[in-house]
Amino acid sequence: MSTNITETTIETKKDAEGKNKTKIYCTFCPSKMLNAGTASLINMEFALPYIHSKGEGKGNQSEAILNYWLVEDMYTFENIGVSHTVGNIKYLACADCERGPVGWHDLSSKKSYIALCRVKHE
């Protein structure tokens, strides 16, 4: 089960170098996460928990996401919220409304990943 975007939609979001063509925003508020051309499109499967947890007992409900923007340096983000550590990662959320996760940060590689389907491109 996944809500991944189709290939054609993805094509329109990247430039010739595979970078994000537009700025990237939170889908719930006007907070800007990334400037254009600062992240690279990658294909990788990683399951992210749903933004709204479904109450007790169903703690780790998550969805498989296949398309991510790779951000090499965390300080590239214009605005981002970073969760407490869970295992070897930190989840990423909007810095202004805290809605998330919109992606994750790998503590060993120091790279961050933003799910295309959880952010707004414009």
Binding site: I51, S53, Y75, F77, V82, H84, R99, G100
Partner: peptide, 12 residues
């Protein structure tokens, strides 16, 4: 929400 359960460590 998922994030409010884990908590925020820091913001940029």
């Amino acid at each position: 929400t998922f994030i409010s359960t884990i908590g925020i460590d820091f913001k940029i």
